[in-house]
Each structure stands twice: as C-alpha cells, then as structure tokens.
Design a protein around this nucleic acid. Structure first.
Ligand SMILES: [Zn+2]
Ligand SMILES: [Zn+2]
Ligand SMILES: [Zn+2]
Ligand SMILES: [Zn+2]
Lengths: 169, 169
DNA sequence: CAGGTCGGGTTACTATATAACATCTGTGAC
DNA sequence: GTCACAGATGTTATATAGTAACCCGACCTG
C-alpha cells in the first residue's frame, strides 16, 4: 500500500462520481436477474467500489463495522459470494482481495452475467490494479487449453508489474 | 481433492521414476547457482514432486513430520520460499498449493533460473494440474500489459476446467 | 396456522501464513 | 584459538483468511 488511500471518498479506477452510477446499474441488473441486492450487499459493493485498490475481506469488514457494528466474517463473505456470483466484483487471487468489475456497468455486457474473460494488471509499487478484457489473451489461453485436452472454465490471469506512473516516476 | 491421492509413491505428472532424476537436476542447479539444497529443502522438494497434485503447505508439513517430528509451519514455508526462488516449484494461487516446475529438469532451460512464463490448467473434478509454457499466451499477455502502460513482471495464469479424462468419463 | 425459502446474526472453528527470537554450524579475520 | 558474521533451522506465538453450524426473523404459500 503506497499511494493515495483516501478514506471513503477516494477516486476509483473509473470516474469520480462513478460509484453511485455503478450501484444503480447493479440494482437494475439484480432486478433483471431476479436476485436481491439487499442493503447489506449494496453496502459491501459500495465499499469495494469506493476503494481504488482491491480490499481484503477483513479490510471490508472493518469498514462495514462502522455502519453495522454487529458485522462478522460471515457477514462480509456471504455478501462477497453473492457479488461474485452476480459478476459485480472479482477476486484478485494474488492479493486475497476484491475489486469491482469494470464491465458490470456497461450496458452492452449485461447479457453476460458472471465470469466474463478478464485479466488484472497489478502494480507492485503503488498497488494500482487494472482490469482488462483482452480477447487475444483469452483466445490464446483457450487454444492452449484445448490443445492440452482441457475443457475451459474460469481463468485467473494476474500480472504483477509496474504501472506507467511508477515506471516513470 | 477428488481423485487418486496415493500416499508417498504416487505417479507424478512426468515420469514414474522421474522424481529422483528431478532431485539430482535440482542439486546440480543449486550447486551452479551457489545456493544450498540442504537435506530439509531436498525433502520438501521430494514431497512436492512425489505428489501428482499440488499440495498445500500444511499437507506438506504433515508428511514432513513423519521424517522430521519437530517440523513447524516456518520449517516448510522457508523451504518453499527457497524452492520458489530457485524456480524449482510454483505456487498455484487458486489452490494455495505448490507443485514442481516441469521445466526445472530441462537442461535447455537451466539458464532461466526462476520465473519462466507458465500457465496452469486445473481440473475441477480430479484436481489434475498441468503446467504449460505457452508462448502465445505469454506474448498476448505481454502485449496487453504493454498497451496499458505496464512494465511486466511475473504472471499468474490459472485456468479451471475439465481435463480430457474427466470430460470423457 | 403450518411449512418452506431466503437473508442475516452469532459463535466457534479451520486453514493459511508470518513475526520474532533462539540455537547451531561453518567460515574468515585477527 | 576465538571472535564476529552469515546462513539455516528450531521454537513460540500470532496474524490473516475463510468456513461450519446453528439460530432467528421476514416473507410467501397453501
Ligand atoms: Zn470484470
Ligand atoms: Zn504503480
Ligand atoms: Zn515452471
Ligand atoms: Zn480431471
């Protein structure tokens, strides 16, 4: 954790006021999917979206406790499971942390539901984490797996490196 | 953990008697690198290589205790750190588990040392885990990262799916 | 009013990983 | 020789991540 870590109002990856917009999109999406984006789930999603870096479950729990003193690990894990199932967030395996899906708000992707092909670029210095949806990567991986006789499911693709800012500065 | 989990004498990914060969290759490699493949580290490497599936640190610890009753978590984690640094094993992030590097014994790769580009295919049903070194995947990832302004470091690429055997049966 | 489903509270626990300090052993300086 | 140092391991305690199990209230349905 090196760079700007604003409390609750940090500047997320997408847009400054994009959190509210993303929350509304998530509500609409859950409505269409016939699942409930309850206040708790919405709160957890909001916490994930507000952070400009992936947050661990216990970091989320700490923040959640401010609004919901009784919160315990299962509280946050259940909400995270739901959000993962709905494709609203992703887990970054290398960090044991969670981050909002950048595609979740895009109308033209709403058909996908969960598990679209994605990749993460993680800056080792400032922690900046960027989500890509690179088709070339997805296809190369698909081909390679097929050649090995595998029927493909979800893929975890996470690259550690230096972001443009940190490489320059 | 679903399929055949032979005790200490399982059939590894490569060859039946390949474990001894791999251990000798590892010794030679460490010698050349000027680092010590101590008995403890060698034992841990052997345990990793004997399993035909990735093993978690505590599973390794249990097996290690049979030979080394005093072993504790740091014992095995330190050995694993060493083996990771030397490129003799990899960590499978999705499983929090460790597996021998298939390249480690290949003479023509010995120059690389650690962190060669690799990918894992993990069967969700039988746990079979296969390591690939697909250049097309590596290049696609490299390109994508470059376009995003990232200077690339290590990549974690892990695909969950069904192996040929499980897809057929 | 049952009886079912779902979300969530609560407690306790398991699993994964590391910090910190102690001990031992070999090596080179003096 | 012995002092100082580095590397490897032992030892104890703790931090971090994730789950199981049980309960309870809200809601719907017959
Ligand atoms: Zn996404
Ligand atoms: Zn950076
Ligand atoms: Zn490898
Ligand atoms: Zn299989």
């Amino acid at each position: 954790m090196a760079a700007g870590q604003g409390g609750a109002e940090g500047m997320p990856h997408g847009a400054p006021g994009g959190v509210e917009q993303a929350l509304h999109a998530a509500e609409a999406r859950c409505l269409r999917a016939g699942v409930q984006l309850t206040p708790l789930r919405r709160q957890v999603l909001e916490l994930v979206l507000e952070a400009e870096q992936p947050l661990g479950a216990y970091a989320l729990l700490d923040r959640l406790k401010a609004q919901r003193p009784g919160a315990a690990p299962p509280t946050v894990y259940r909400a995270l499971d739901f959000l993962l199932e709905q494709g609203l967030i992703h887990k970054v395996e290398r960090l044991n942390a969670f981050i909002g899906c950048v595609e979740a708000g895009h109308a033209h992707h709403e058909g996908h539901g969960h598990d679209h092909a994605h990749q993460f670029l993680i800056c080792r210095q400032c922690g900046l984490t960027v989500e890509l949806s690179d088709h070339a990567v997805a296809h190369a991986l698909d081909d390679a797996a097929r050649r090995a006789g595998f029927r493909i499911g979800n893929a975890t693709v996470e690259v550690e490196g230096l972001c443009a800012g940190c490489a320059a500065g």
